[in-house]
Write a protein that binds this DNA or RNA. Structure first.
Lengths: 159, 159
DNA sequence: CTCACTTTCTGGAATGAATCAAGACACCGG
DNA sequence: CCGGTGTCTTGATTCATTCCAGAAAGTGAG
């Protein structure tokens, strides 16, 4: 394995072995913000051919642990992954279709960690999820619960 | 079914039939803030005797839909339920043991719904989860991932 | 009180997201 | 090239939640 792409450098930089499934998973997550596990599996298989779902789960776990990928799981939803890491951003989730979009932090890192009353806990992260309805569902008059779409929607890339 | 307890009045007020499983579930959730489904099942069975787990799930769904109970599901956790509804409070979750505590909203209802950039979404709720470590785990030097304790902890009632 | 309608619960089954585990295979440093 | 060790394959399993047909219970009207 000589030289290599940016993704390979990212993996090596995180002291991870460079494998085809890993490169493919990382690429899939970078290309599709907030993508769910099953979709990743689909995209990876298109790129690399047969890859077991267990391998994908393992890769995602490793990438998440290494900080190359972030895992989010809004209530009632399967796990989703994004490549935007290391900044203090939040998410807005559509109650109807499950679409997710990034939202920048409004108050800044330090204030964000200051709860009115932290109950004695040592807080290290404030996760904010804004729940509402996306423009597509609003336009189509959808009021049902999240359909948990597993296809990649174009409106998941507004940021 | 004559007269009745406060719980019965609550149920009737929500146009729900009063059944023993429902009363028991509602009591369990009120007595144990942030209790998970399996624990509810255990508590209900102690109170009423054999109750199917399907019944408990159905009751929780009905109570949640009626607004008598609130369902929360921090990332990586099973569903938890609480009786504190109708106010704008948030939660702090312990990464080590999974304990959850209430945290009052620091900014007020309206500001809370104002995202820096809402990506065109119509926002109706801002869910804030503060992640950190509780005093018990900090004292015991625990750093492992949430053990997802299913027993009822006394330190889940600081508020 | 009785009865009938409708809802709720029982008991069995199913789903799907994620994980476990043994062993074959691939990566990569010496 | 080789060997050590991590990673992926393949088969299996777990578990939280939901589906479903029918029996049982709640309750309002007469």
């Amino acid at each position: 394995m000589i030289g290599g792409s940016e993704l390979e450098r990212l993996l090596r930089g995180a002291a991870l072995r460079v494998t085809r499934p890993r490169v493919a998973v990382l690429a899939a997550v970078r290309d599709h913000p907030h993508i769910d596990t099953e979709s990743i599996i689909g995209v990876v298989r298109e790129r690399v051919g047969a890859v077991s779902h267990q391998a994908v789960y393992d890769v995602l776990r490793v990438l998440t642990t290494a900080g190359l990928v972030r895992r989010i799981q809004p209530a009632g939803s399967v796990a989703r992954y994004e490549a935007r890491v290391g900044d203090n951003h939040h998410h807005v989730v559509c109650r109807s279709c499950g679409a997710i979009a990034d939202v920048d932090c409004a108050v800044g890192f330090a204030p964000c960690l200051t709860a009115a009353d932290d109950a004695g806990y040592t807080i290290d992260e404030a996760e904010v999820v804004y729940w509402g309805q996306c423009t597509d569902c609003a336009r189509q008059g959808r009021t049902g619960p999240a359909a948990e779409q597993r296809t990649v929607h174009s409106h998941e890339q507004p940021t």
